[in-house]
Design a binder for these strands. Sequence first.
DNA 1: CTTTTGATTGCATAGCTATGCAATCCAGTC
DNA 2: GACTGGATTGCATAGCTATGCAATCAAAAG
Lengths: 337, 337
Amino acid sequence: MGAQDGRRVTSVDVAKRAGVSQSAVSRAFSRTASIAPATREKILRAAAELDYRPNRIPAIMLSGRSGMVGVVVGGLSNPFYASALEHLVCSLRDQGLQVLLVHVDDALTLDSALEQLLGYRIDAVVTALAIGSEVVAQALGTLRIPVICFNSRLTGPWISTVSSNNRAAGVTAAHLLRERGVACPAWLAGPLRNAASVARGEGFREGLGALAAGLVSLQGDDTYESGYEAVSTMLARGVRPDGMFCSNDMMACGAIDALRDRAGLCCPRDVVLLGYDNIPQGAWRAYDLTTFDQGVERLVGAACALLAEALADGAEPVSQSLVIGAELLERGSTGPV
Amino acid sequence: MGAQDGRRVTSVDVAKRAGVSQSAVSRAFSRTASIAPATREKILRAAAELDYRPNRIPAIMLSGRSGMVGVVVGGLSNPFYASALEHLVCSLRDQGLQVLLVHVDDALTLDSALEQLLGYRIDAVVTALAIGSEVVAQALGTLRIPVICFNSRLTGPWISTVSSNNRAAGVTAAHLLRERGVACPAWLAGPLRNAASVARGEGFREGLGALAAGLVSLQGDDTYESGYEAVSTMLARGVRPDGMFCSNDMMACGAIDALRDRAGLCCPRDVVLLGYDNIPQGAWRAYDLTTFDQGVERLVGAACALLAEALADGAEPVSQSLVIGAELLERGSTGPV
DNA sequence: CTTTTGATTGCATAGCTATGCAATCCAGTC
DNA sequence: GACTGGATTGCATAGCTATGCAATCAAAAG
C-alpha cells in the first residue's frame, strides 16, 4: 500500500512502480490521450496497488478551471429549495461539476462568502436566493464568471436567470378563483424583495379584473408562521375572504391552519385556497393543497443548460433569461376537480 | 481594472503595480506574516485597483490541505437533514472550511462521488447518511482522511460518530406512553439499515416492559407516505393501538393523517403519538406533534469539534463516538402537558 | 531491405503562491 | 560614530500534473 512515509502518493510514484514516465501515468487516467491499452492496464494496476488517486489541483492551476460551481442558498427550511438543491447537485455532477455550497443569511455574508469561493477559482455561481438588490447584482457582476439566478430579476453581462412563469400563474390562479365563484379574494404576499412573489401578485391582480377592487392584501415572509399570523390577524379584524392565493406553499399551509383554528373555516368549503411551489407537505392529507408545480427538474435542467453554454470554451459573457411555465396542480383545497 | 488580456490577475501583477516583490503581496494577504503597515496598505490598494483575488489553489498544492470538507447527504426532502446541512455549512464556514456537497442515492454513487472528491484533496468527510453497510465503512476507511458520521454505527480508525441518544429516547417514549395509560402500543420503524431507528426501537421495547409483549410493529422507510401506508394497512386489518412511537417525524405526520382519514382517530384523544427529530412541520397546527429534539446545533457543534480535533496538526487517526442527549418536546399529540 | 506512416512514449515546462533564508534597513544604545 | 537587534523585504524554490514537441518504435507499403 502507498503512503510509506507521510507523503501522498503521486503520479511519479506510480510511474516508477510501473516502469514508465510520469506523463504516461497522466495519460492513463485521461480519456482522450493516446496510450497503448497494455501500458494503461499496467499503470492502472500499479496505481491500484499504491492506492493512487489523481490530483486535480495542479490541473486547476494549469487550466484555470476548477470544475467547481459555487451554489448559494438561503432558507433550506423551505422544502422547495431543499429539493431544488438536491436536483441541482445531481445535475451538476452529471456534467462533471462539483458543488461548493454556501449558506447566506444576509448580503454581508454573501460578500465574504463569495470572496472566499473565488479563491477556489470556481467556474460559476448558481443562486436560488430570493434576494435581488442592486448591490448583490453588482457584487455578482464583478466576479467575471457566469452567474445563474433562480426567480430573480437581477441583470448584468454575466448574469442569466431562470424563472417560473410567475405572472401567468398569478393570472391562472385568479381565473380559478373566479370560476369557483369567489367574491372576496385575498392575496398573501411574500417579502417585497422576492421578485417572484411580486410578479405572482401582479398577475393575480390582473387576472381578477373587476374583483381586484375588493382584494384583501396580506403580507408574509414566506414562512408557515407568517402565513398563520397574517391570516389570524385578518380574521381577528373580522375580514372573511372566500378565496385566497398564497405566494408559496409554506404560507398556504399556515393560512389553512389559521383558517381552521381561528374561525373554523375549511378549504374548499369556506375558502378556495391555493399556493405555489408544490412542496411535499402540500400533498399531505391534512392540507391537500392546490398549487403550482414549478417543475424543479425543468427549472434545474434549464439552469444547467445555460451553465453549460456559458462555460463552453471561448464563450462570451452570456446574459439570458429563461421562463419555465408552472403547471396548476389541482387538489382538494380548491374543491373537487 | 484588471484582465487587460484574457489572463487572470496574479500576485505578480499586483507586485509590479505596487512596486514590491511577489512575496510582499502574498504577505499582505496573510494574517500572520510580518509586513509593514504602510506596505500592506499600498499593496491592498493596488490589488483593489486590479481587482485581484488571492488564489488558494497553489497553497493547496503546497500544504496538501484544501480547506474543503466533503459533505455527503441523501434525502434532503427530510427537513431535519436540510436543517442539519444548513447548520453544518455555517459552522464549517466559521472554521474556515468550505463545503463540497455530494448527493447520494445508493452505495454506487457514493463510491464514484468520493473518488471525485478525493481528486480535490478534501480534508475530511462529513456524512449524514442513514447508511451503514460494511462496504461503505471500508470505502470511507481507505480515504485516509477523517470521517464524521451522524447517527451511524460505522467504526474504523478514521471514523468518528456523533449520535443522538436514540436508545434512551426510546425508553423515554415508552415511559411517556405508560404514564398516559396506553395499553396497546405500536412502533413504526424506519428502514433496517438506519441504525438510529433500530436503536430507538430497542429502547422503546425495553422501556415498555411487560407491555412489549403486545407491541404492534410497523415498518416504514422514513417517509410521510410510508407512515401513512403502514398505518392505513394496520387499520384495515382491524388493529387499533392507543399509543404509538414513530421513528421519525415525517412518518409520524403520515401516521396522524392516516389515523384521522381512515378511522377518524385523533391524537391524543384516541392515540397517544410521538415522533423524533423535531422538524418544523411537526409544530404545524395540523399535527402539533410531540417529538424528540436532537438539538441540531449541539449535534453539528459536536461534529465540528471532532473535526477540528481530527484536523489539528500532527493528529493521529481519530476514532471517537459522541452521544448527544435528545430532549423530549411535549406537544398536543400526547395530550395536555 | 528501405521508406513511410501512424501510434506510442518520454522530456521539459508552465501554472501561482507561500515560506525559509539571507539581505537590508532603521532605530536605539553605548 | 560604531554596533546590536529587530523588523521588513526580496530571492529562490517546492508542490504535481497536463500537454506540446520530439523521439522512438512497429508495422505496413514499396
